[in-house]
Design a protein around this nucleic acid. Structure first.
Lengths: 111, 111
DNA sequence: TCAATATTTTAATTATTATTGAAATATGGA
DNA sequence: TCCATATTTCAATAATAATTAAAATATTGA
């Protein structure tokens, strides 16, 4: 992972609303949630501000969106998330086996 | 972990220089590095700007500093780091066993 | 105590990011 | 086609964070 991608991802997460959105999407799993459901989950309105934050997450590579009928679904990009976590812990303690993150979450492994 | 602590930590990491410092300290392990060694590792000068970034990491809870003779050492706060990673992946996919981060790095486990 | 190395503080300037509110687009059902 | 629901765009303003450079402090050894 490149440093500037990581900075962009971290910057996207460094905001109260976006962090809540991200965690909501992580909990939601691979299918994601529609904008309306996200708004519900956060207790906010589905307005321009929410769209702005969602787009920031997508621009940072942490989420993807797809249209389904009249709804737009946003979902976590788990590959990007795992890359970011690994980047943060890479070669922890000089690589002496502390247990650096390799993969933290993969919807395909869900029960 | 509280949301605003996580936002502060992520904000501290969302900066090219600070992210490099953090990763350098993670690699360095529990003992950390002196300011001069950090500057060396980054290829920058040990000046006011570096101090500023180091203090940001400490203020965000991600690092700690201690004086040793005429040197000041900075080191990763691994507990805070692990809490942050866990916060990001909490209840992944609704808690269905995808492998959420519990602990990613602990210097005491080093070989 | 003097000088050298190590690190920090401060204040002014510049750059980046967030918020607001209103209008616009897009989709599906009556 | 018309209406209601769903989501997005835009532009102006406000708020926050980053950079610079110079002076200040602190510790050790001669």
């Amino acid at each position: 992972m490149e440093s500037n991608l990581a900075v962009a991802a971290l910057g996207a997460l460094a905001h109260e609303t976006r962090l809540e959105i991200f965690r909501l999407l992580v909990r939601a799993g691979g299918g994601g949630l529609s904008v309306g459901r996200i708004a519900e989950g956060l207790g906010v309105e589905a307005n321009g501000r929410l769209t702005f934050h969602l787009k920031e997450l997508v621009a940072a590579g942490l989420a993807a969106s797809r249209q389904e009928g009249r709804f737009v679904f946003y979902s976590t990009d788990y590959v990007a998330m795992n890359e970011l976590l690994r980047y943060l812990t890479e070669d922890c303690c000089g690589g002496l086996g502390c247990g650096e993150v390799v993969e933290s979450c993969n919807p395909e492994k869900c029960a």
